[in-house]
Structures are given as structure tokens and as C-alpha cells.
């Protein structure tokens, strides 16, 4: 591993520093709990697995978000794609629940992709509009109340149960992670993604169908959000209004803290993984400390700024 060598590559440095920061959080949290309660829940595997189980939903959303950020776009439609997938899956029910849920994500991703790639509408604004439309459709569908439908057994099993003591959600997250890593590092698609993020015109001139790749990235992001929605509905046994709202900004933050350039073209999936773990652990330490929402928001913001000041600084414009 390059972490052993003295000269770190530009992509490894953020990952290493973020990993160190995770250790700092764990140590600081443990000192706090030891001084106050005389116990160290943060170091118990059960507690950590439980936190990671909750983090799996964020991790899956962040994996999709990373595909889109790597091509220098952004997907703001994640919150209601997630909620819509969960609501459609629970209201269809039966064996078709999960395919229908994922289908919703695929469709939303396709619409996003076509709007951004072919109509050339800035993704910031197009996905915002799609998010509003999805919210409108779901509000009209549910009547604005919490839907009464329940998650299917398969959804509950995937999100809530454990196999060999390990939450199944972690297996799903691991599968998604392996898939994304392979796509980014071992396939032509992955090369194209980085190429488009660096300079779309150059990738186009090199013969890449950049618009098709853009659509594919948005579809992957939509499906990832839908998968997280289906799992989250399984975890909480039902879908509810606004269930995706808490996932948009943390997923972007996780990707960026992991060293992915928000302007695209640079970043490794391992970083995103570490970014998610960092955010999840930070949240759990803050909730152990009984930090009020105000303090959480402030610390959350300061941590992002601090991490980026350490390794996320851009280059000075000189020409």
C-alpha cells in the first residue's frame, strides 16, 4: 500500500488523512464515554456493526452520487428518488416490490441523464426539477400522509436481519462497493467516466460517446438511491414522507471528504467509503454526547471545512 511509502499520490493523501481522522473520532469518543459513563461502547463490535448498518444506506447513496460527481455533474433528485422507490416498492408489495422500486430509480436516472446529456440543462437545475416532480407525484399518490403499506419480508430480511452476526445491509453495501470499484478501475466505462470528468470535449474528440456515458452515470445514481430507499423501507418496515431528505447533503459530503474532486475527474471509491464511515461515526459520537442539533450542525460544517483545508485545496489560478 502506498500509505507505507513517504510520497503519497494525490489521490491517496485524502484517504489516509480521513482514515486518521476516523481514529481521532473513535479515540476522542471513547475518552468521553469512559470519563462519563465508565464504558467504551464505541469499541464494541456490536455497536460498531449497528452504526455501520445504518451507514449502509448512506454508503449506497454515496456510491451512486460519486459516479455522477466524477463526471462533474450532481444529482439533487436523490431524496425523492429514494422516497419514491420505497413508496412504490411497499405499495406494490409481493415478489415484484424490489424490482419495481429499482425500476423507479432507473427511470428517474434515465430522465435526469437525458435532460443533462442531450438537452444540456445544468444538472444542478434539472435534477432539482425532477426532485420536485417526484415529490409532487408521491404527495399526490399518498395524499400527503404516511403510506399505510408495509415493506415485504424480503426487504426486511435484506435490511434488518443478520447473517452470522453481520447485518445483511452490510453485505448489500459491500456488493455495491465491489461493483463500483470494478466498474471504475477495471472497465472501459470507468476510464470514460474519469475522462469525461477531466474534459468532456477531449473525451468526445477521442471517440467516447460522452452523452451515453452521462446517461449511464445518472441511471446508476438513480438505481443506487432507489436501492437505498428499498432497504431503508425494509429497515423501518415502511416508507414515510421525506425519508430521503437526510441523505442528500451527507452523501455529497462523504464523496468530497473522501477526496473526490467536486469538479469531477479525480477520486477513488475507497475514499468515498471512508468518507461515509467518518460521517456515520461522527454522527454517532455526537449523539452519544447528547449534542443538541445546533451543535451537531456547527461541528458537521466545521469538520467538512477542516478536512478540505487539509487536503482539498484547489490550485491557484495563474493563467
Amino acid at each position: 500500500m502506498s500509505s507505507a511509502s513517504l510520497s503519497l499520490s494525490r489521490d491517496d493523501r485524502p484517504i489516509l488523512i480521513a482514515a486518521l481522522f476516523i481514529l481521532v473520532i473513535l479515540v476522542a469518543g471513547t475518552i468521553y464515554t469512559f470519563a462519563r459513563f465508565g464504558s467504551a461502547p464505541l469499541l464494541s463490535p456490536t455497536y460498531l456493526l449497528q452504526q455501520l448498518q445504518i451507514g449502509a444506506f448512506l454508503g449506497i447513496v454515496a456510491a451512486g452520487m460519486m459516479m455522477v460527481i466524477l463526471i462533474a455533474q450532481i444529482d439533487l433528485s436523490v431524496p425523492w428518488t429514494l422516497a419514491a422507490a420505497a413508496m412504490m416498492a411497499t405499495s406494490i408489495g409481493g415478489p415484484l416490490a424490489i424490482p419495481v422500486g429499482l425500476g423507479v430509480g432507473l427511470l428517474v436516472g434515465l430522465i435526469n441523464g437525458i435532460g443533462v446529456a442531450y438537452l444540456r440543462v445544468p444538472s444542478m437545475i434539472f435534477t432539482l426539477g425532477v426532485n420536485a416532480v417526484m415529490r409532487g407525484l408521491m404527495v399526490a399518490h399518498t395524499g400527503g400522509y404516511a403510506p399505510q403499506t408495509a415493506a415485504t419480508d424480503l426487504m426486511r430480511m435484506l435490511a434488518g436481519d443478520r447473517t452470522l452476526g453481520i447485518p445483511n445491509a452490510l453485505f448489500v453495501w459491500a456488493a455495491v462497493s465491489v461493483l463500483v470499484t470494478i466498474v471504475l478501475q477495471r472497465t472501459a466505462l470507468g476510464r470514460y467516466v474519469y475522462a469525461i470528468g477531466n474534459k468532456e470535449a477531449a473525451a468526445y474528440l477521442a471517440g467516447v460517446d460522452t452523452r451515453r456515458i452521462t446517461v449511464i452515470c445518472f441511471v446508476l445514481c438513480g438505481v443506487a438511491a432507489a436501492l437505498a430507499g428499498v432497504l431503508l423501507a425494509g429497515y423501518s418496515t415502511k416508507a414515510y414522507q421525506g425519508m430521503g431528505d437526510a441523505y442528500l447533503l451527507p452523501s455529497i459530503a462523504a464523496v468530497v471528504i473522501g477526496g473526490t474532486n467536486i469538479l469531477g475527474g479525480r477520486g477513488r471509491y475507497l475514499g468515498t467509503l471512508i468518507g461515509v464511515v467518518l460521517i456515520v461515526l461522527l454522527n454517532s459520537v455526537l449523539s452519544i454526547m447528547d449534542m443538541p442539533e445546533a451543535g451537531r450542525q456547527v461541528i458537521y460544517g466545521l469538520v467538512i471545512i477542516f478536512m478540505l483545508l487539509v487536503y482539498g485545496r484547489g490550485e491557484r489560478v495563474t493563467s
Partner: peptide, 8 residues
């Protein structure tokens, strides 16, 4: 800080 405005 030279951090991207959107994320800062």
C-alpha cells in the same frame, strides 16, 4: 482556503 464554493 481555495475550496470549491459549492462545497465550502
Amino acid at each position: 482556503g481555495r475550496i470549491q464554493p459549492i462545497i465550502a
